[in-house]
Design a protein around this nucleic acid. Structure first.
Lengths: 344, 344
DNA sequence: CTGAAAGCGCTTACAG
DNA sequence: CTGAAAGCGCTTACAG
């Protein structure tokens, strides 16, 4: 019942384990006839390569570690999908680590992936992370590291992001063009670049259209439904409340929408709302959520492709790390459309 | 720059690799003093165990393979979360494989996981799968295999499911109690047990309440928004259309809801709707979707716990495989509430 | 085109 | 309590 090894095949065919190994790996110096008979024997004996042994010897595991806050956020699920598409064809697999947005889990994840000898790591950092030693270790060990979406400039590693500034600008511009006058922003943790960029895009769009930037209308949330609720409650209680909200991501926007719907004096249609991320639920809520699409599958594919290229280079830092910036798209749905006020 | 090994530590402390290995694994026969100094040296030299080498020698990888149709379905994301919670504490990690509901991908996934020497596999089968040889091989190799949700009785392996019959009965009963008279069912592939069970629950609830079971009102879909749309269009075009629909899962229900909303002569509130799974979006669509909750996190935890127990047994089949059946819960939201007809 | 031999970095009976 | 030695199943220079 114990598993077939290359030695079993070698014995069967009266050849050597080396030849069997070469044949199964399609090594050019093995004759076609030999390869053929070895392959047949392998199949007959139900041979399966022992990847662990192969990895130990060759130094390659064909495993890519993927670190994300949570697969339950459809954005990350979708990116993982894109990653898998690309690497599967090259014989790679995904070893998954969820951080639950916790710094400690992220550190532990990196350690585990290092111990597992992954051939590379593709990651999006947790919102709690403000120290990067664990990622620096990856870099110093010359293990290909690619960040996506939530990247960290100071790490100086390749990254795939969308143009968050531009996306935020478009979102805000859209609200302005709809005729909203006091546009608030629910932002996110500023140490993560993308959230800061979105804030910048918001501010610059207001300025570009001659709107005043009012610090009271900018709140800092935590990227969750509950946080979106809290921020919105705060905004609606202002002496001079907003007539529109641009939320830094869709979960915050969803929280905002809930509060808006519950509040008697602020129905949807009166308060414009735009999110960011085009989460799975965003098209189906009511009103459906106007948001910024991030080309998630493409983001995953690009990150995986960078890894594939990096993998060969082997520690020759050829200039600054590659950075791919994808174009955001505005997806207009109902939540941002301004209702005609003539009814009142 | 090459990685520290136990030999490096041994040399440093003038002891043997065997002792270093034992000390780092907290072997009882090593003195506390020795352990202490070895641990310190390991830390100082930034030692990280090479899991590949450890696995090859010990035969354990501390990796659990998880096979699911797609992490983008929040149900599966949530179960994976539950699995990770349990196994992380025991030092295990998740090697992820998505099948995209394709039989070929599932077979390939199993092969890869076998080659990777995973210590066990936790899986939910693809809807396209009707042959199970790949899973039989796992079983025959004595690798712990646990199925969840979409399980296969004939494989005779442990499984965690919810009581799908009961959930479907509850869903249908709820619609009956709301006063709906012609309740349709959008079902799923019948070779997967849970979908057949849900159909049974639907039929039996109708019978239990003296409703007629009308074959015209039962359609067989493919578990997707589009499929739900198609089935619903078909149902609404019947000479004698339904006044309520119980959908086999939430994506089908979402498709149904879209068609209902688009159709001028069948607004929500007139056509009752219940789904199954309590997907992430279900609470937020309008009308919010009444559905059956499946205790996803618990399902993952239970599956992981079974694996943990199985792992020790080592091929002594002690009676029939364990089967855990979780209780479903009816989550009543707006989509199933019957509007008073007095308005007309 | 093929084989013998070394070795990847651990773990673990066996011996003391 | 500690060490020497074998070996997990591969891959790969080296030699022919």
């Amino acid at each position: 019942m114990s598993r077939t090894t290359i030695h079993d095949i070698a014995r069967e065919l009266k050849t050597s384990a080396a030849t069997v190994s070469r044949a199964l790996n399609d090594h050019p110096s093995i004759s076609t006839a030999t390869k053929e008979s070895i392959r047949k024997a392998a199949q007959r004996l139900n041979y399966r390569q022992n990847r662990t042994a192969s990895s130990l010897r060759s130094g390659k595991t064909f495993v890519v570690g993927v670190i994300v806050p949570s697969v339950q956020i459809s954005f990350f699920g979708s990116v993982i999908h894109g990653i898998e598409q690309v690497i599967k064809n090259q014989g790679y697999n995904v070893l998954l680590f969820q951080t639950n947005e916790q710094y400690e889990d992220e550190v532990q994840g990196v350690q585990t992936l290092l111990q597992s000898n992954v051939d590379g790591i593709i990651a999006s950092i947790s919102k709690e992370t403000i120290k990067y030693d664990h990622f620096l270790e990856v870099k110093h060990r010359n293990i290909p590291l690619v960040l996506f979406d939530r990247s960290i400039d100071e790490l100086e590693v390749p990254a795939v992001v969308i143009d968050d500034y531009k996306g935020a600008f478009m979102a805000t511009e859209h609200l302005i063009q709809q005729g909203y006058k006091r546009i608030a922003h629910i932002s996110g943790p500023q140490h993560i670049r993308i959230f800061h960029e979105r804030l910048r895009g918001y501010v610059d769009a207001l300025k570009a259209y001659g709107h005043q930037v009012d610090g009271d209308l900018i709140t800092y949330g935590k990227l969750s439904i509950d946080s979106g609720r809290a921020c919105t409650q705060h905004l609606l209680r202002l002496a001079h409340p907003p007539d529109a909200i641009f939320a830094v991501e869709d979960f915050s926007a969803l929280g905002a929408l809930q509060v808006i719907k519950e509040s008697p004096w602020s129905q949807p249609g009166q308060i414009g709302l735009v999110g960011f991320a085009n989460e799975a639920f965003s098209a189906y809520i009511t009103p459906s959520l106007t948001t910024i699409d991030q080309q998630t599958a493409l983001m995953g594919q690009e990150a995986a492709t960078i890894f594939m290229n990096l993998r060969q280079e082997e520690s020759n830092p050829t200039g600054p790390p590659q950075k791919i910036v994808l174009e955001p798209t505005l997806v207009v749905r109902q939540s941002s459309l301004k209702r005609q006020e003539t009814i009142d």
